[in-house]
């Protein structure tokens, strides 16, 4: 199936991709992966434009990885949760539904790219730029999650709780993956690197951001130096 035709079906009628007997994973998965890489890469390119230069390339390479990481790491746990809730869910069906959802989210994120680029091109404040990025990701991600939910079979019990648990597992992996592959937006004075050294985790960063929003600017490294390895470098705070 041509990539353009697949794009149309992913956006217009994702459920039609799962019509018929069997799950066409072999037929659709390569194309869907290509869509995620292309659309996610395009969105990454836009994010990289905030800092410019080589960061265009870095962000374009890393963003599809962040989008795919929850699928690669959390899918077995998500399936086990649905099975425990009594939902008859095959791994191939879940994998395809998740791929379709992520592809749809990537395409929508890429569609928001031009507007985001326009905002970034007028030298937006760093924090506003982060908020715009988060807003775009939340919009696209919510659409992708709803799509996945609609593509899963019916039946089972405690569906809402199971959806929430699955979302929690995948969301935690997504957050840590994003933290691991940062920076995407780079502060104007920060050094551009492909990835930063592994230091602490996303939750420490969120905690530090929360403290600083309340006027405590010590940062996570100030409190955590005795806990973590001495070679851990201070965070640049960029994302």
């Amino acid at each position: 199936m041509a990539l353009l035709q697949l794009t149309v079906r992913v956006l217009r009628s994702p459920a039609s991709l799962l019509d018929g007997d069997g799950v066409p994973l072999a037929k659709l998965a390569p194309g869907l992966l290509a869509l995620v890489v292309l659309a996610g890469g395009l969105f990454g390119l836009v994010i990289g434009s905030y800092r410019g230069g080589i960061q265009h390339v870095f962000a374009a390479i890393k963003l599809p990885g962040v989008l795919l990481l929850p699928l690669l790491v959390a899918l077995p746990a998500v399936r086990a949760l649905y099975l425990a809730a009594g939902m008859p869910l095959g791994y191939d069906r879940l994998a395809l539904a998740a791929l379709i959802g992520v592809a749809r989210a990537s395409l929508l994120a890429a569609a928001m790219g031009p507007a985001l680029w326009l905002m970034y091109s007028v030298h937006l404040d760093y924090h506003v730029a982060v908020m715009c990025l988060c807003g775009a990701l939340v919009l696209a991600g919510a659409t992708g999650l709803i799509t996945i939910g609609q593509l899963l079979p019916g039946g089972g019990r405690l569906r809402a709780v199971t959806h929430l648990a699955a979302l929690g597992v995948a969301g935690v992996v997504f957050a840590q993956g994003g933290w691991l592959l940062r920076p995407f937006l780079v502060r104007p004075r920060a050094e551009v690197t492909f990835v930063r050294p592994i230091e602490a985790d996303v939750f420490s960063s969120v905690g530090a951001a929360w403290r600083s929003s309340r006027g405590d600017y010590r940062g996570w490294e100030a409190q955590s130096v005795p806990m973590w390895a001495p070679e851990a470098e201070p965070a640049e705070g960029s994302r």
């Binding site: 790491v73 959390a74 077995p76 746990a77 086990a80 949760l81 425990a84 597992v169």
Partner: peptide
């Protein structure tokens, strides 16, 4: 047990 096994990659 099934959920535990699924959580191993995470």
């Amino acid at each position: 047990g099934r959920i535990a096994l699924g959580l191993v990659p995470v």
